[in-house]
Amino acid sequence: MKRVLPPTNLFLAFEAAARHRNFSRAAEELGISQPAVSRAVASLEEAIGVKLFLRSGPSVRLTTRGAELSGLMSNSFDAIEKLIASWKDKESGRKPVLLSISSSMAAHWLIPRLFDFRLAFPDVDLRFELIAGGVGQSPVRADLGLRRFPETSKAPPESHFLDEIIQPVAALDYIKRMGTLDQPRRNRTHTLITLSDHWCDWDTFARLAGLELPPNHKTMVFSDYSVALQSALNGQGIVLGWLSVTSRLLRYRSLLAASDRGFNTRATFNFILGDQTPVGGVVGEVREWLCAEVGKDVAKIGKGGRLHSFECHVLVS
């Protein structure tokens, strides 16, 4: 029986536009022009008699029915990609594990460990679903995902990765030139690196940690935490460091604590299995390895219930 559907290329254009929320980026992915994407979406809307996008200048957003169709198509394409990948993996004999973490954790915490990971799991093909910004509590569509649980939420105890601990950190070169927040160099002005639109800015941190910010300090504002950390690594200022991302940097002295003030938010970071991921097996072993690795970091920089970065201490309230 013949399917009564519009041409497939119209659906492909719509799916890309919906995923990117941008016709130009969809066109770039598909290798066609932006007007061609716009015409394809308009043709699909006309064929099915439903408005899929609300257009306002260069920006577009999905209608309720557009979001419904987009979700269905994304899930279908994900399933097709996963099926094809499984065929390839069976032929190669490798076991794929899809890991959902923040881009900053991938860049500064996990990628430097990939050599050790491959030694521990030579038959595992580790893949990434990277999240820009905080990981939050969004559903885990990957095999394994790091998520943040507030104090009031309960996460499976076996999934615990690390408490949310925040501390000011900076490169050794910066501290030698400028001093710490507690002992600044005379006639020097600190630069505080911060994230835009984040719940924990420097004023919030100072209030919660009991820290007096230096007067007349300069600021550098970034929208991406990985870039903010890289700026601190380059000796350009002091950044608020989330231990779940900075533990390796502290362990190997790429960054040092820039104050003896810090605090535990009582939230936790946990590695949660995806809905379709079986308990145990290779994914469970990968989770155990990740948790063991951060444990090694904390053991190196921790002492007597306090976190410290060698000569610089961070108090955890």
Rank of each mutant, 00 (worst) to 15 (best):
N264E: 09
E45T: 02
F14G: 00
H198C: 14
F205V: 06
T246F: 03
S24E: 12
M105Q: 15
I131K: 09
G241A: 13
F117D: 08
Q230S: 10
R251Q: 14
E68I: 03
T265Y: 05
V60I: 14
P215R: 13
D297A: 04
S254G: 13
T152W: 09
A18M: 01
G210P: 15
L83P: 01
I80T: 12
A17H: 00
N264A: 03
E158Q: 15
D182P: 10
G284C: 09
N75K: 12
A232E: 10
L256M: 12
D224V: 12
S226H: 03
I175M: 14
R287Y: 03
G284T: 03
L72I: 11
Q137E: 08
G57A: 03
G133F: 07
A299E: 14
R251T: 14
W87K: 04
G133A: 07
W202Q: 11
P7F: 11
P184W: 08
Q34W: 00
L5H: 07
F77V: 14
P7D: 10
R306M: 07
G31V: 07
M105E: 08
D297E: 09
L83A: 12
P156E: 13
A257F: 10
A299R: 12
P122Q: 05
V283E: 09
G237I: 08
L12W: 00
L83I: 05
R25T: 09
L110Y: 15
V169G: 06
S86K: 13
A171K: 11
V314E: 07
